[in-house]
Design a protein around this nucleic acid. Structure first.
Lengths: 150, 150
DNA sequence: CAAATTTTGTTGCTTTTGTCAAGCAATTTT
DNA sequence: AAAATTGCTTGACAAAAGCAACAAAATTTG
């Protein structure tokens, strides 16, 4: 397989997959929270305690934009912010109980929509699909620091 | 592998891959055209002759939004629009020479950025990666009508 | 066939999302 | 202790996307 063929295969996959993911995202949108907001909730949920900078190491958003989203999530009582005593420039961001609840609901929605996708597959194909994705992740994201958050 | 494990694997892949694709998209953004515009150019380029409705069978955009993007691409002389003599509600959309040129440039950019991604892999892994992606596409998109445009 | 319905596309208006630049306070560097 | 950097915030703005109302043409159907 020559390089051009490889690249075209990957690009074809990307085009298809972007659309699939787009559909998954729409599931999220029926839930009052945007994809980015969900991602932030997901990250804070995992890390228990974070800062805006930590979140942005993963999401790479515009800092001002991130600041505003966090503010919004705080105003909805999903997150809390507390100035770090160690470094007063930093604010420790944590989930509230309500935030955890919402995050769990979003998690379920996401799980549900993936379940719907694989439901069309034969049962033995589902496992194979997961193995294939795992193999790809190992190839592409093995040594990346971000892999720790999955 | 139980269903939950499968779903979590796929979701982990999605989270990682969304970010990768996000980076690929940024390559596009340095090129005066948004991802959506590029996709439209890609589709029109492939199909030689289309309509807004055809494009939207693939992209599922808001119709008004699509109408405006097409208008913009026409105003930049990348596309042309001609009322269909058969069905006067429809407008046949085609590429101009300039449009083809631009599309080819965007195509190169996209190819280039995928090339950059796989360049970090061992040569034998690159082929394997493409085979894995192909296998996944066969599982997920085999009988879909959209597969014809890849 | 004529009225009702559907399809295709357009436009005005609004919201959402994201970017840029300036700035402040705390920290680190020199 | 002055200068530079870091973490975060804000205002102003631009781009992307969605909603609703509409017109023109085609199709359905009574």
């Amino acid at each position: 397989m020559d390089e051009m063929e490889i690249i075209h295969t990957i690009r074809a996959f990307n085009r298809n997959y972007v659309r699939s993911i787009g559909l998954l995202e729409k599931t999220m949108l029926n839930s009052d929270y945007s994809l980015t907001e969900s991602q932030i909730l997901f990250i804070v949920h995992q890390q228990k305690k974070t800062t805006a900078t930590d979140i942005n190491k993963i999401l790479n958003l515009d800092e001002g934009y991130l600041s505003r989203i966090i503010k919004k999530l705080i105003s909805k009582s999903l997150l809390t912010k507390k100035q770090s005593p160690v470094d007063k420039r930093c604010y420790e961001i944590m989930m509230t109980k309500k935030g955890i609840k919402v995050q769990e609901k979003l998690d379920q929605l996401s799980t549900e929509s993936v379940r719907r996708v694989i439901s069309t597959l034969a049962v033995e194909d589902r496992t194979e699909l997961a193995l294939l994705f795992n193999r790809i992740m190992n190839m592409l994201y093995k040594d990346k620091s971000t892999s720790s958050i999955n």
